[in-house]
Design a protein around this nucleic acid. Structure first.
Length: 765
DNA sequence: TTAGGGTTAG
């Protein structure tokens, strides 16, 4: 008797000592190791505490959390007494780390034993059944829940509502269960709010939230705010919810902060994202990756890369999200160096075959023409999804590579996988057909599209228009355009661009008008095309109307739109209006400056062009080759020979810009106009482009220089025998010099080799 | 002692 009492006291002491220790371990976020589990197991056996069901349950949860199912089951089988917690722990661990069928098998065993499942058991099971594959099982479990009288319980009921939202997308059943609950706690309300937020029913979310606020003693928590934030599309809305979080005095957790970082960036306010990020005490991987993608989606790729490098310096763990977001930024800013470093980190962190990360990496390598490694990367990806295939097909659709490889890949995709082809797949394959030699493949894809459900997809239609346009089949492009059911700005831009490229400006402008009549919202893509059509036709009235619309939609200060307006007014003869638009630009870049300089060049205002260039230098904007071409052409036309030469050397020496043929031609033009034909001849011999020779020949014609004129004409005929220009110019030189015989010979030669002069045309009647 | 709701990337 005494011995037994003494033993029990020992046991009690051991329990008192072990219990807090086990509890503290259970609270730790990381699962404990198998060795630690064994040590605890041994200690429980030695102290004979293993027979205490609650302690054995805790050990069972340790084995389960670390996915040591074998040991968990061994312990479970040996336990002399099991309770509902024992069963629920085992079921829950299989659901979290193992498989749903195994969990269901254990649940069936539980039902066959005398143990009754409780609200916790049902809660975990129902949540697992929200996966669509187990939908019918979920309905059966709902039946059991009713039999056990737990269907109105707040725990089991909340999970049931969750299941109807996620698995069945059944809002009515979810609402019915919710209305039937005996008690609705914050979790129950959150499940409802999040369910309606996911399906985009924001009115319902609003209503539920106001109802919830009326319930006494209930306060929205972080989870509520996350769901509310998911309903935000506008910056103002994000700010409002941000304010609400403070109003309710909630202790903001890392998840809410992460969502706000992500959303502010999605609404274009990266500075607010960064402010929240910097103020966060606890930062998880999620928020680091949100910050990187935030920079990237706002066209601030350089900052994304800098942020990533800073993150590496701080030794933050790199996950797939961080790596793929960074690579996306590298693709955007064409930063191969960082991309290669990220590749190394992918290997180091074991993510080299991750589908998300490898898909972007192959896009990056492909954009630098490294196609050999791309294929290897693709083949190694685990569980390739449709986006990985699309990326690979697009990687192979590089200009000049033909369509065969992309077509083969799509056939392989259809033959070997059960993945559903997406619009992006077709867009990628069509991209590889943008050449007349690949037209047959393009037509095959077109017929495939017509047979599929994707024929009404706007993106696919746009790709077809583009493909036919690149193959110079204007009628087919137009037919494909007509077939697009929901034409967007891009559809109209494609067809207008097609007509413009093929010198059909009148038709292009007609389509611009039609587009406006259709009420399509003009954007920074379509507006420049419309302005360009106007300028080519000198259609200033239409141009002015479009200018008003550009102001109305707030695009007049967009660099692409702004430069096209400046160009349109200049080409339509209204340089004053170009100057007005130019002066309205808040942060003019080189494209805007170039448009103004070109405008002055066209109007023969060399002095003003040079003044604009000085302004550009003062604003620390880097000029490009177009800037110098416009400046040199303005100066050469005005007869400023020395100034043209000065600009040419400035371009080379100060700005390190490699001259193109056009620059040489401009230089030749300047010398030619001044009659300095020998110097011009020296330059042409160095450059040797057809356009430079043509310019020189023109100058010889103006200055009646037969000697260099003959040399130039011979060179041009050698370079392009079917061109009529050298014959005409040369015969003009002979005529001017009175060498009629030579002139006739020249024309005869031209007739002999069937070179015909294009008839002249004029806009003036 | 078991348990329900919320976040990111290509």
């Amino acid at each position: 008797m005494t011995g037994r009492a003494l033993f029990d006291a020992h046991k009690l002491h051991a329990v008192l000592e072990l219990e807090p220790f086990l509890l503290s371990l259970a609270k730790k976020p990381n699962p404990i190791t198998l060795t630690q589990c064994h040590q605890i197991h041994a200690k429980l056996i030695i102290t004979q505490c293993i027979s205490q069901t609650h302690l054995a349950n805790t050990l069972l949860s340790f084995y389960s959390k670390s996915s040591n199912f074998h040991h968990a089951h061994q312990l479970f089988n040996k336990m002399p007494h099991r309770n509902v917690v024992t069963w629920t722990t085992l079921i829950s661990s299989h659901l979290k780390h193992g498989s749903v069928p195994k969990a269901l098998k254990i649940f069936n065993q539980m039902l066959l034993s005398d143990e009754r499942p409780n609200e916790y058991t049902f809660s975990v099971l129902l949540r697992a059944c929200s996966n669509h594959d187990f939908w019918s099982v979920g309905l059966q479990i709902h039946g059991s829940l009713v039999r056990f009288g737990l269907d109105r319980d707040k725990f089991a009921g909340s999970s049931l509502v969750y299941m109807y939202f996620k698995g069945g997308n059944d809002l009515r059943d979810a609402l019915r269960v919710f209305n039937g609950l005996l008690e609705r706690d914050v979790v129950a309300w959150n499940v409802m709010i999040s369910g309606f937020a996911q399906v985009g029913d924001f009115h319902m979310v609003q209503w539920l939230f106001s109802e919830m606020r009326d319930v006494q003693g209930l306060k929205p928590d972080n989870s509520t705010f996350v769901s509310l934030l998911q309903c935000c599309y506008l910056l103002l809305e994000v700010k409002q919810i941000h304010g609400l979080v403070y109003k309710f005095g909630a202790e903001i957790d890392v998840v809410v902060e992460s969502v706000m970082v992500d959303l502010y960036a999605k609404c274009g306010d990266v500075s607010s994202s960064r402010r929240i990020f910097d103020s966060m005490e606890e930062k998880d991987n999620f928020v680091w990756s949100s910050m990187i993608s935030g920079y990237s989606m706002n066209n601030r790729g350089e900052e994304a890369v800098r942020f990533f490098k800073n993150m590496c310096r701080q030794r933050v763990k790199l996950d797939q999200h961080v790596l793929s977001s960074t690579l996306k930024a590298c693709v955007e800013i064409e930063d191969l160096n960082t991309g290669v470093q990220v590749h190394g980190l992918m290997i180091k962190n074991g993510h080299q075959n991750d589908c998300f990360v490898a898909s972007v990496l192959l896009t990056l390598y492909a954009s630098f023409g490294d196609l050999g490694d791309v294929e290897k990367l693709f083949r190694r990806i685990d569980d390739k999804d449709i986006v990985a295939w699309n990326s690979m097909i697009l990687a192979r659709a590089r200009p000049g590579h033909g369509s065969s490889h992309s077509m083969q890949l799509m056939q392989e995709l259809r033959r070997t996988t059960s993945l559903q082809i997406e619009s992006a797949t077709l867009v990628a394959v069509l991209k590889s057909c943008e050449n007349e030699s690949d037209l047959l493949a393009g037509r095959q894809i077109h017929s495939l599209i017509l047979k599929s459900s994707l024929c009404h997809h706007t993106l696919v239609g746009n790709a077809l228009v583009h493909m036919y346009s690149e193959c110079r089949l204007i009628d087919d492009a137009f037919k494909a355009f007509v077939d697009i059911e929901w034409k967007d700005d891009s559809s109209w831009s494609s067809i207008i661009g097609t007509y413009k490229q093929n010198d059909m400006e009148l038709e292009a402008l007609g389509l611009c008008k039609e587009m406006l009549n259709e009420g399509v919202n003009l954007t920074s893509y379509s507006l420049p095309l419309c302005f360009s059509a106007c300028s080519q036709l000198s259609a200033i009235c239409e141009g002015k109307q479009l200018h008003v619309l550009a102001i109305k939609f707030g695009y007049n200060r967009d660099v692409y739109v702004g430069s096209s307006i400046i160009d349109m007014y200049a080409k339509c003869g209204n340089i004053e209006e170009s100057e007005n638009v130019f002066s309205e630009q808040l942060e003019p870049n080189e494209v805007i400056f170039n448009a103004m300089i070109c405008g002055y060049a066209h109007h023969g205002k060399a002095q003003q062009a040079i003044e604009v260039f000085s302004k550009l230098e003062k604003n620390c904007v880097a000029p490009n080759h177009v800037t110098f071409l416009a400046l040199m052409s303005a100066c050469s036309h005005a007869g400023y020979v020395e100034e043209t030469l000065h600009l040419f050397t400035l371009m080379l020496d100060k700005y390190k810009i490699k001259p193109k043929s056009e620059h040489y031609s401009s230089l030749v033009d300047a010398y030619g106009r001044a009659g300095r034909l020998e110097e011009a001849y020296q330059i042409v011999q160095k450059d040797g482009s057809e356009s430079a020779w043509r310019t020189l020949l023109g100058a010889c014609r103006n200055h009646n220089n037969t000697e260099i004129g003959e040399k130039s004409a011979m060179k041009m005929i050698e370079m392009n025998p079917s061109d009529h220009a050298p014959y005409v110019l040369l015969s003009n030189i002979y005529n001017a010099e009175g060498k009629w015989e030579e002139a006739i010979k020249c024309r005869e030669k031209m007739a002999k080799i069937h070179v015909k002069k294009d008839p002249g045309s004029s806009w003036l009647v």
